[in-house]
Design a protein around this nucleic acid. Structure first.
Length: 934
RNA sequence: GCAGGGGUGGCGGAGCCUGGUCAAACGCGACAGACUCAAGAUCUGUUGGCUUAGGCCUGCGAGAGUUCAAAUCUCUCCCCCUGCACCA
């Protein structure tokens, strides 16, 4: 059967039997969720990693006997789809190209996706189909969209709760802004998808007559070393008035400052009115000149720069460049502010000369600046001013605060990776938004509780715990609303929309009640209703009467929540630790009682495509549904989760995918043929049974810890190799094979469920494990300790070693063996082996050995054997076969060896060796028989 | 800068927490052989160097140390990747 027929067949059967639609029951539950998708593009194989990991886990837990709930919804909050719909409506070429070439959506379809709703509808359906084709065991009855009315009411309630706790606050906040669109811009709003980076300049007021020149700097601590100011003669400067004061800045800066403070634009100021005149350093009171420099960029900061030639290479260079002009007499002045090991009094000069920087236009000036700034900030110490002796970095902050308090400076935000342009073509600025709402993740008491919570959450992989700890410490106020976007209006200012990372923190609880909420008019979902449903406040009767909602329904929902919550496992890619997953903890701690806090978080790495990161620009995105069509669901499932350890990136490539398919094929052949095998037993039978029971024994732990890669290695690739070896060794026992396969299919079922169902069906009535209509809900097998057979394992190991040794000899001697004698070591050597394993010391073993009559007879030989054993004392295994067992094992493999090597094989014990062989035979050691090739 | 993750055979990638069975799992690639008219697929073997008896040597970013013994532990250094927010 074609993979796709097979997939359809089982997906349909599962759906018909509703085996993934759990309800409240007596059975112990397991509730797990994966981060829901944002439907602004088709999902690719990378998205499938998290969901497949979750699904494998869900399927495993289901087989372990849990009532498992794995729901899914769609996150349609925020601005990207808005921006996308707008671009489509406007006929933006670039987006049409992306849709056509990368998403494979025909052009006539694209033009219809011109509203956010249509886009969401299109992509969410596409994604849902993909998830269904992947065979994810999702309960689709619980699906919702975050712009559903009922969800809005839920989020409304959440924010009312946060406010009650005092976790919401208002303040001002700088955001990247498009002055034309009058809107905040994210990376998806900018040309080339650039993410604007905002940094803070300190604007220092230098008194100039009745005005102030405003210089912009990142290094206010160098104020003590200012020798002059710089203005660019070819730039337009203007006078502005704000807060009763008058300032001079570049006209570009004035435009930007408009968005950050109230100001009036006054007259132009010609640079000739400035250059050569003096102004006053507000810190030192010193009079300093205003000089011309070309490096000053009017678009950066204020367009006026303070010159600190001792520490700023540009300033030193610009001064030096004045030589030969009328300002020549200013050209060699420097005041040292910071002391730095390895530098003298004039670090900027020293580094510029060291690097051979020609002038202020030389690109090397930038390098010199970066190098010196880094060193000084990190290791430099103040040698002047109030904070003399302190580190430059700490002094910087203190000096800034002091001057702020004294009214000597203003602050200005600027985009430091600019200029960044909005898609509309306008250059973005920074706007200081007043009255911005925040969730105060900086609240110390809250942080403490979250840390408490973290202690009781099982974090997988363990090593990511530090990242959560770090994030909890580092989080501060998080702006939680935006002026536009899809989602829930903010309850305390309905003109604002709650942004997407803030409305997705406790939605897991919503799944428990979402199917029932659909029966209620959303308008009735007042906060008190959720108080009851989520927190058990009040009682169903009251709520029912007050809001005319069916009491039974309320009880039912409360019951669902209490049954499913807390969440047993949360899954996402590792990049969300720094925001979503930590917010998730914060919000649960804030809103829910301790017993409903999450139990586990699992994060995973990404998927690479043929070794490279998938990206639109590389054009190497493999859409999930295309991958399914090409390789089949189970192959895709297997590839994305088994290619790497959980936290590492997995590589998807076609050779690997084909390899998986061909191995599945091998298993299928055996399943089909296994009943044709005779019942003939062979010494290798016990080994195969031992192997499968070991797998059963150890795979459970791997599944629990989501060590999916190990499962793939041991249970899939390992099984193939074992089966191959079994057949090669002449194994052909129908029962043994069936037993192996029945267990194996159970172990593989969470990974490759469609294939497993088919094999489960093909195997027919089970003879060794408990049967079930679907392997997907079959009982997880238990191993039989009795069948784990150490001596069978050792025997097989012995045969393998012997085979390899013979190969080695043949290869080195280049002879064609016609007859092979294998001599097994005597039992007295095995006694020494066990002694050596136990005692590990030569003299102890030797002493013990001499108590034995046989060995006392030939002390030299005993000594030689002990020496050898002690030499490799750490390689010895705890148990060892007896001479008889060894001979039996080899005897059982005689035909195998004989036919593989095309030679007559004789198995003897070393005592039976004669003549020329006897010397060689004496070298036999336990588990390493001596070999004589003739 | 801060935080996190890495540097292992031609490549991907285990192992390193709990030092010895590590010339290093597993896979890919390459080479040789079988099958085939041939190619592909498949199967068998080889794939650091030396070696006519299962052995020896060199090796896991660089350097130093601890140890009988280090890819594995400690220290120093170099290099690479990711994140740093209001954005899903």
């Amino acid at each position: 059967m074609e993979p796709h027929e097979l997939e359809d067949k089982w997906q349909k059967k599962w759906a018909d039997a509703r085996i993934f639609e759990p309800d409240v029951s007596e059975i112990r539950k397991f509730f797990l969720t994966a981060a829901f998708p944002y439907p602004n593009s088709p999902q690719h194989i990378g998205h499938a990693r998290t969901y497949t990991t979750t699904d494998v886990y869900a399927r495993f837990m289901r087989m372990k006997g849990y009532n498992v709930l794995f729901p899914m919804g769609f996150h349609v909050t925020g601005t990207p789809v808005l921006a996308m719909a707008k671009r489509i409506a406007e006929g933006d070429k670039e987006i049409y190209e992306i849709f056509k070439n990368i998403y494979n959506i025909p052009e006539h379809m694209v033009s219809q996706l011109n509203t956010p709703e249509k886009l969401v509808d299109y992509f969410s359906k596409e994604i849902e189909l993909g998830m269904k084709e992947m065979g994810f065991s999702i309960d689709w009855r619980r699906k919702f969209y975050t712009y559903d009315k009922m969800f809005n009411k839920f989020i409304d309630w959440q924010f009312i709760k946060l406010n009650e706790k005092g976790y919401l606050k208002q303040g001002s906040h700088p955001v990247p802004w498009c002055p034309k669109d009058n809107n905040a811009v994210g990376s998806h709003d900018t040309q080339g998808d650039v993410d604007p980076n905002i940094d803070e300049y300190v604007l220092i007021k230098f008194k100039f007559g009745n005005y102030n020149l405003l210089t912009a700097t990142f290094r206010p601590e160098t104020i003590y070393g200012v020798t002059n100011l710089w203005v660019n003669p070819s730039v337009n400067y203007v006078r502005i008035e704000s807060n009763g004061e008058s300032y001079i800045v570049s006209s570009d800066a004035a435009e930007k400052l408009k968005h950050q403070m109230k100001l009036e634009l006054k007259e132009q100021v010609r640079t000739v009115e400035l250059i050569g005149k003096n102004c006053t350093n507000p810190m030192t009171g010193e009079e300093i000149p205003i000089l011309p420099a070309d490096f000053v960029d009017p678009r950066n900061g204020s367009g006026v720069v303070m010159s600190v030639p001792a520490h700023a290479p540009y300033d030193f260079l610009a001064l030096r460049d004045l030589k030969g002009t009328s300002f020549e007499n200013y050209s060699d002045r420097a005041v040292q502010v910071i002391e730095l090991a390895g530098y003298g009094k004039y670090p900027a000069k020293e580094i510029s000369e060291k690097l051979g920087v020609a002038d202020q236009k030389d690109p090397k000036a930038k390098q010199a600046t970066e190098e010196l700034y880094r060193a000084e900030a990190h290791e430099g110490r103040m040698i002047t001013g109030k904070y003399r002796g302190e580190k430059a970095l700490t002094a910087k902050e203190k000096i800034k605060q002091d001057m702020l308090a004294e009214g000597k400076v203003l602050l200005m935000y600027d985009i430091i990776n600019g200029p960044v342009y909005c898609r509309c073509g306008t250059m973005c600025v920074v706007k200081k938004v007043e009255g911005q709402w925040f969730i105060n993740y900086g609240d110390e008491g809250w942080k403490e509780q979250v840390k408490e919570c973290l202690k009781q959450v099982s974090i997988i992989p363990k090593k990511t715990i530090v990242e959560y700890e770090y994030t909890i410490d580092w989080l501060k106020e998080k702006a939680c609303v935006r002026a536009s976007g899809l989602g829930t209006p903010f309850p305390f200012d309905r003109t604002q929309i709650i942004e997407s990372l803030s409305d997705s923190t406790i939605y897991m609880a919503f799944y428990t009640i979402s199917p029932y909420l659909k029966e209620i008019d959303a308008e009735k979902l007042y906060p008190e209703v959720f108080d009851y449903l989520m927190l058990g406040k009040g009682n169903a009767k009251e709520v029912s009467t007050k809001f005319s909602i069916d009491e039974q329904l309320l009880n039912k929902m409360r019951e669902e929540l209490l049954y499913w919550y807390p969440l047993d496992s949360r899954h996402s890619a590792g990049d969300l630790i720094h925001n979503h997953l930590t917010f998730f903890l914060f919000n649960h701690v804030a809103i829910f009682p301790r017993e409903l806090w999450p139990k586990q978080i699992v994060t995973n790495g990404f998927v690479l495509m043929e070794g490279k990161k998938m990206s639109k620009s590389m054009g190497n995105i493999l859409p999930l549904r295309e991958a399914i069509r090409k390789y089949g669901t189970d192959v895709v499932r297997f590839s994305v989760v088994s290619g790497a350890d959980l936290s590492q990136d997995a590589d998807f490539n076609s050779t690997m995918a084909e390899g998986i398919a061909s191995r599945m094929n091998s298993i299928e052949m055996l399943v089909k043929r296994c009943n044709e095998f005779p019942l003939e037993s062979n010494t290798v039978d016990n080994w195969l049974l031992s192997a499968i029971h070991k797998k059963v024994k150890f795979s459970e732990e791997h599944y629990k810890n989501l060590e999916l890669r190990d499962i793939a290695q041991d249970e899939f690739y390992g099984a193939i190799n074992e089966l191959k070896w079994y057949l090669r060794r002449g194994g052909k026992n129908r029962k043994v094979l069936r037993e192996y396969l029945e267990y194996l299919i159970l172990l593989l079922s969470p990974f490759i469920p469609h294939f497993s169902e088919e094999m489960w069906e093909k195997l027919g009535k089970k003879e060794f494990v408990k049967d079930s209509e679907f392997v997907s809900i079959a009982e997880w097998p238990k191993h039989d300790e009795m069948k784990i057979d150490t001596s069978a394992d050792l025997s097989e190991q012995l045969i393998l070693n012997t085979r390899e040794d013979i190969d080695n000899i043949v290869r080195i001697t280049k002879m064609t063996p016609r007859v092979i004698y294998i001599y097994c070591a005597s039992d007295w050597k095995r006694k020494l082996y066990s002694l050596a394993y136990k005692e590990k010391k030569f003299d102890v073993v030797m002493k013990e050995a001499m108590k034995d009559d046989r060995m006392r007879g030939t002390p030299k030989e005993a000594q030689r054997v002990i020496e050898q054993l002690i030499k490799n004392v750490n390689y010895l295994s705890p148990t060892v076969l007896s001479s008889r067992q060894e001979k039996e094992a080899l005897e059982g493999a005689k035909n195998f060896l004989s036919s593989e090597l095309n030679a007559d094989v004789f198995i003897l014990s070393e005592d039976e060796a004669q003549d020329a062989h006897s010397k060689k035979a004496r070298q036999a050691m336990p588990m390493k028989p001596s070999i004589f090739i003739g």
